[in-house]
Amino acid sequence: MSLTDEHRRQLYYYMRLSRAVEDAAWALNNQGRMVGRLYTGHGQEAIPVGAAYALEPEDVIAPMYRDMGAHLVRGVDPVEVFAQFMGKRDSSNMGKDSGLHIGDMSRGIVGMISVLPDSLPVALGVALAFKIRKEPRVALTTFGDGSTSTGAFHEAVNMAAVLQVPLVLVCENNGWALSTPNAREYAAANLVDKAVGYGIPGRHVDGNDVEAVHAAVSEAAALARAGGGPTLIECRTMRMRGHSNIDPADYVPPEMLAEWAERDPIHRYRARIEAAGLWDAEREAGLEAELQERIDQAIHQAEAMPEPEPEDVHVGVFAE
C-alpha cells in the first residue's frame, strides 16, 4: 500500500507513542512499580511500527519484547501495557508472566516467551494454518540477530521455505545480543545472506527508516499473500540502551552509540515529514501534550487495577 499524508503522520505518532510508553515504563521500573525487568526498543521503533503498519487486521504477528510499537499499532492500549508490566490480575498475562509477553489471538498477537526464537516455528504454524485453509492472510514474526544463531531459526526458516507458507521474517539486527556483538554471532558478510541458503528472497533495509521498513514488509506480505512463500528482511538498527534496564551496556563503544544517535528513527522521520509539509512545531507541541496526558492517565488507570489473588496461581494450567 502506498502511504498517504495521514498514514505518514500515524507512523510518526506510533513511534512517538511507543517511545513515550517505554520512557514512562523505565521510570516506573526504577521506582519498583513493575513486575520484572524492562526491555525496550529505544532507537529501533521504526521496525515494529513500520512492519505492523504494513499488515492487514486479519494478519497475525508474533512480536518480541522490543516491539512496543507493533502492539500499539495492533490496537493494544497503553493501559493494557502498563497493567501487563505491573502484573495486574486483569492484564494479558494475569500476573503469571511479565514483560511485553502480551498475547491475544482476537487481535492477531502471539504472546512471546523469553526463549525468543520460539516465535519463529510458531509463526510458521500460524502461516501454515492460513495456507491449509486457503485464506489470504500472512503471519509475521520479528527476532533479533542473536536468534538467527539458534536451531529454531534454521528449522523454522527452512521449513517455511520448503512448505511455501505465507510468512514474513523480520530480523531486527540491533548489533547486540546482550553483550555479544554481531561478529560473535555470525560470520556471513550480512545476516540477510542466509536467505540465499534457504532459497527465499532476502531484503536488507535501513531499520531506522520507518517507510523503508514499511515498504519492504508490504512487498513481502504481498508476495506471501499471493502464494510466493516467505521473505527474510534484515532491518539494520542499533540497540541504544542496555539489554534490559539493569544492564549498563558498558561493553558498547560510546562512538557507536554517538554515531547511531544521529540516525534516531523518530528524529529523522520528524525532519522528513516536516520537510514534506506534513508536520510542524505546533502539531509537535500538541502531540507532546496529548502523549503526556494519555500516558499519565494510563498509568493511573493501570495502578488502580486489582493485583492477583494467591489462589490464582492454580488457575489455567489446562484449558477446560
Binding site: 516455528p121 510458531v122 504454524g125
Partner: peptide, 28 residues
C-alpha cells in the same frame, strides 16, 4: 497433501508449527 504433510527433519519446527497452527484454529 494439504492435510497429510511431510516435513523436513525438524522436530523443533514440527512442534512449534503444530503449536502455531493450533492457536490459529486448527487441530494439528
Amino acid at each position: 497433501p494439504d492435510r497429510v504433510i511431510d516435513t523436513p527433519i525438524s522436530e523443533n519446527a514440527i512442534i512449534g508449527a503444530a503449536t502455531g497452527a493450533a492457536i490459529a484454529g486448527m487441530r494439528p
